[in-house]
Amino acid sequence: MSQNKNRIVEIGPQGSLAVLALGSVGLKKWREAVREAQEKEAKSKKKDGEETGK
């Protein structure tokens, strides 16, 4: 029914209303992006810690 099936919504950890509006799919993808970002941040903190010896 939609005439706009190919629209592109960017999904980043910061989220957006457009992502929430995608419903269950958007929510899953966004939470994945948040998780990935958190893991990345944790890794980078760990790496920084190792480099600085803290």
Binding site: M1, S2, N4, L17, A18, L20, A21, L22, G23, G26
Partner: peptide, 22 residues
């Protein structure tokens, strides 16, 4: 206004998920 626009965005997605028989 943002509330209404948000609902329109949700409606857009809802309409994507139904077929012509709905």
């Amino acid at each position: 206004e943002a509330g209404y626009q948000f609902h329109d965005m949700m409606l857009e997605r809802t309409l994507e998920l139904i077929d012509d028989q709905t």
